[in-house]
Design a protein around this nucleic acid. Structure first.
Lengths: 137, 137
DNA sequence: TCCTAACTTGGACTTTGTCCAAGTCAACAC
DNA sequence: GTGTTGACTTGGACAAAGTCCAAGTTAGGA
């Protein structure tokens, strides 16, 4: 976390209280908050922080590669701070819970050249879906 | 296509001109239109069709399993009529073009039991990203 | 301690999607 | 054919998620 703030400062980021709070809210494992959730939690620590700043800051963190944007369902985007360890997502179809997971092998390898249609393919995102222990029948 | 309309009729669907037009617009390979694009094309054939009907019809087709909803980017959902042949998607990071692709093996198999956290995992969606031939440097 | 470019703010605006009451019509029975 | 009826469609209001901007504030270097 403070690593993150250090890295950002090293890149010329101005370290405002708003940015610090957003970074703090995003700290942890299996964190996948929407922008609105980030704003709600940030507001608890810094009541006057605005929605626009939360969006700005999240966008900057994504651009800097410190946070991943995850579009799981066509509703609000979610923000995943675990950007420095490759992983995929497992989502409960019942309650929407999200876990980071680590499949074996490289998903990119499964796509043969003949199926690449001349694209320079650089990434593969996998979303696993199922029912979590609480939602199972 | 007429297969589709037959299947729907067999399931008790009332076959209105609006629904027929939406189904026609969605016909084809590598079709991944947004609801708005579907509406625009449907309007060309049936000028008085409403946005609400396009949304309703798309929702019904998804529920019936005839069309897949694809959330690729946190913007508008896209509708993929190729629901009866398992496939994944390859998206150009430059221009947004989408192709259906068929990776080798079953992506589900890559997720070990220890990484399933007690979930009953039933599906895996893979999104490959890269630059298409036109957008490559 | 001052200065200034960078940052933040609130509110207006856009895009995407949902909901509803009122009107229309496909399909079935006759 | 014709009538009937419940399913379907419509337009408009509404909601959620996100973007944009002009004006005000401030972190950090000089």
């Amino acid at each position: 976390m403070s690593d993150l703030l250090e890295r950002l400062r090293a890149r010329g980021w101005r370290l405002t209280s708003q940015r610090r709070v957003v970074a703090e809210v995003l700290d942890g494992e299996h964190v996948h908050l929407t922008a609105d959730e980030v704003h709600a939690r940030a507001t608890a620590r810094l009541p006057e922080i605005s929605r626009a700043t939360v969006y700005n800051t999240l966008g900057e963190l994504v651009t800097l590669g410190e946070v991943l944007e995850v579009a799981t369902d066509g509703r609000a985007k979610r923000y995943d701070p675990n950007a420095h360890r490759a992983h995929q997502h497992l989502i409960c179809s019942g309650c929407g819970a999200i876990r980071d997971v680590h499949p074996q092998g490289d998903p990119l390898a499964a796509l043969p050249a003949a199926e690449r249609f001349g694209f320079a393919v650089t990434a593969a995102e996998v979303t696993y879906r199922g029912l979590c222990p609480n939602c199972r029948p």
